[in-house]
Simulated scan of single mutants.
Amino acid sequence: MDGPRGAGRPPERQIRAHGTERTITVYQAYPPGIGLPAVREGRFPAAWKRDRMTWIKPSFLWMMYRCGWGAKDGQQTVLAVEITRAGFEWALGAACLSHYDPRVHADTADWRRRLAAAPTRVQWDPERDLRLRPLPYRSLQLGLAGEAARAYADEWIVSITDATPLAHRVHALVRAGELQEAARLLPEEAPYPLARGLPAHLGG
């Protein structure tokens, strides 16, 4: 098994995530000086800048692509951050696409106005397989700034887990060619249930 979990090809844009009835798990990667205290305390340390945009990713394999399985400088600690669905859905509702899309925006000026006003932004990037090759459908990245970044850090977080050992185990199996075993270790990611489907302002 070299592709993502599950049968059939997902829609071009779909939110897929691991979670519970009340929470969703997103991934980030940080240097140990931020990541390890976050795991110990269950919240980000003072060194984590609440006035900067931060990007969260529901896709484990996209995070592995971004951080090189936890090997890239400054991204050695991979965090699985469990947040409330209420916070996540607020962020989706307040978001603007990070790039102009003529199917969504009246013109580029309309997009720029929306982007400047939005505390969150959405970017759709090709999902990745176990070898981190791009797949023909996309996964969500969610950028949080201003009030959204502060709410994420101070209100939405339920737990923070160190996912670095999992990243290293899966990577070792992929390098050994044990793709089925690697796939069995991946977090189960199901389509995120949105009552009315993906909102139009996010390209739905």
Rank of each mutant, 00 (worst) to 15 (best):
A91T: 04
L79A: 06
R112H: 11
A109I: 15
T54P: 06
P134C: 10
V78T: 07
A117E: 13
M63W: 04
V158H: 02
I56W: 00
R138L: 12
P134S: 10
E82H: 03
W55V: 15
H105F: 14
L97V: 07
Y137F: 15
V122F: 02
C67I: 09
F88E: 00
I56E: 00
C67V: 08
V78G: 00
D129K: 07
E127L: 10
G143R: 01
R66M: 05
A163E: 08
L79K: 03
R113G: 13
I56A: 03
Y100P: 01
H105Q: 04
R150V: 12
A153G: 09
V122S: 06
F88N: 00
A95G: 05
K57P: 10
R85M: 08
P119E: 00
V158N: 02
D101G: 05
A148Q: 02
P136K: 09
L115M: 06
F88I: 06
A80H: 03
D154A: 08
G70C: 10
V104D: 07
G146I: 04
A118V: 01
A117T: 09
M64S: 06
W156E: 02
L115H: 04
S139L: 12
Y100H: 12
Y65A: 08
W124H: 06
Y65D: 01
A118P: 02
T54S: 13
A94Y: 07
V122K: 02
K57V: 13
Y100T: 04
H99N: 14
L97S: 09
C67Q: 04
A151Q: 04
R138T: 12
R128G: 01
A71Y: 15
A163F: 12
W55D: 09
R131L: 13
L79G: 03
L115S: 10
A91G: 11
R85F: 12
G70W: 13
R113P: 07
S139Y: 10
A109E: 15
L135S: 03
K57N: 06
D101M: 05
A109T: 15
F88M: 04
H99Q: 14
A80I: 03
C96T: 15
R103N: 14
E82L: 03
D125C: 10
A153R: 09
L130Y: 11
I83V: 15
A80Y: 04
M64L: 12
D125V: 13
G70I: 04
E82D: 10
R112I: 08
R112Q: 14
C67P: 06
S159P: 09
P119R: 00
I157G: 00
L132Q: 13
T161F: 00
A80E: 01
C96W: 06
K57E: 07
L132S: 11
V158G: 01
Q141N: 14
K72T: 13
T84N: 05
Q123H: 09
C67A: 13
R131C: 11
E147W: 12
H105L: 05
K57D: 10
D162I: 02
